[in-house]
């Protein structure tokens, strides 16, 4: 295990970059998916278009997307922004449906009474629909987080450094240790993301646990 000891600093740096490349798109993707999900919910005709359309995005192979984006956007091939954008696309692909279904899970009588009390559309969305959709959206976000942590590692093939670089490194030198360390780090990172989302969700939804104790 001397390799691990010698490279602890490098591994930490790669981990931080991995968090950045997987985490920032998660947040960007969520913010883009919120209005799209709302539109899909609001206009019945848009629902299939948006759900199938964004769903298809997820089927684009990640390597192809990483390589195509610099051509489409005119960015440098090694620029991490390509990875950020690609991962944001995947996040949106996973979350639009989640957001739409989350908003759909808000009981109709709750929406009706909000309207009847004089909530205008935006305020109703922010203070009634969105908070109530949090449990469903959070479940989707956990899937997207794990998926991001996993897909980002492919970016090592186009030279954007993160934990995936340990795989290419180990492969090039026919050396197992970095690969094992990389896999374990990725799993740990996925668990970290998952735990963080779970924790934030619990904080945001005290009401979800309220019914448990009584009746």
């Amino acid at each position: 295990m001397t390799w691990l000891g010698d490279h602890l600093g490098d591994i930490l740096g790669l981990t931080v970059r991995h968090i950045y490349l997987a985490g920032v798109p998660l947040i960007l993707g969520l913010f883009i998916a919120l209005p799209l999900g709302w539109l899909a919910r609001r206009y019945k005709g848009l629902y299939p278009v948006l759900i199938i359309g964004t769903g298809l995005l997820y089927t684009i192979p990640s390597l192809a997307l990483f390589i195509m984006l610099p051509f489409l956007l005119g960015t440098k091939i090694l620029d991490p922004i390509n990875v950020i954008i690609a991962m944001t696309i995947y996040t949106v692909a996973l979350l639009v449906r989640t957001v739409a279904d989350g908003l759909g899970s808000v009981p109709e009588e709750v929406n009706q009474s909000a309207t009847a009390m004089g909530y205008q559309r935006v305020r109703r969305f922010m203070s009634v629909e969105l908070p109530l959709a949090v449990p469903v959206i959070s479940a989707g976000l956990r899937v997207a987080a794990v998926s991001n942590v996993s897909i980002v590692s492919v970016a090592a093939l186009i030279g954007v450094e993160q934990l995936g670089s340990l795989f290419t490194d180990g492969f090039d030198r026919a050396f197992l240790e970095p690969i094992i360390v990389g896999v374990i780090s990725c799993v740990a990172l996925a668990l970290l993301f998952d735990g963080a989302i779970l924790g934030l969700t619990r904080l945001a939804t005290p009401w979800q646990r309220a019914g448990e104790g009584s009746s």
Partner: peptide, 21 residues
């Protein structure tokens, strides 16, 4: 519309309370 509604109390079958409040 909004002003009209805020001046009218409205009660429905399952109360329609906000579960998160």
């Amino acid at each position: 519309e909004t002003e009209l509604r805020r001046g009218i109390g409205y009660v429905i079958q399952h109360a329609g309370l906000f579960p998160h409040r």
